[in-house]
Amino acid sequence: MAPENNVSDVSNMGTHMTADLTGRSSDSAQPPRWAAALLAWIFPPDDAETVGGDLLEEYRDAVLPARGERQADVWFVRQVAGLIWRAPVGWGLVIAAFIAGRFVLDTLAPPASYSQRSFFTTWSSILLYLLAGAWAARRTGRALTGTLVAVCAHVVGWSLSVVVTGAIFVGVIRNDPAMLNLFRETGGWGEQWLLPLMLLPVVLVLGSLGGVAGRSLAKRSRA
């Protein structure tokens, strides 16, 4: 990689003074490093470099001169968010289907005993987070990618399921006393909205375990 331009290397006094006054020149300006690092954690190495380079070029060449440092940094972070959310969204949709699907079944088709259904959904969810972590880490060769994708997918899934279960509650359950009673007996909003949030540490562990497995698979395939 070619060394980056450094403001102190600028020999022209006027340019140097301009760079001092503004804080940084476009060619050496750096967007938020943590946002740039996220690309490396989510994308395979080649993609992280090329996509990161594209964003940096746009940042330096067009956005920073037009909007100034602060707005340019906001722009960069938004672009990174727009890139990385796509990685976990597929898993997030599956997780949302799990959470919302369980809610629908428990409300519209309540079983005699919830233990069998709970056993199935619990172990399916565990497998899902392990797979999400392994899949993500295999792409980048980094275990932390598995953790990030599993957690992001869980947040996406939880957010979507909140919308779906809320709509079902408003449209169906609220007006039916028997369903409303069943909804409260099976845990109500705590079960639907708070429990997934409380499970975040568990998801973090599962995603990390999947990430370790994915990293091992990546190393073997490259060997």
């Binding site: 990689m1 980056e4 470099e49 380079g53 594209d54 940096l56």
Partner: peptide, 15 residues
């Protein structure tokens, strides 16, 4: 295909 980088993108390769 991967191609060369440029200074404005910190030398990062282009696709």
């Amino acid at each position: 295909r991967l191609g060369s980088g440029t200074p404005i993108r910190g030398g990062r390769a282009r696709r």
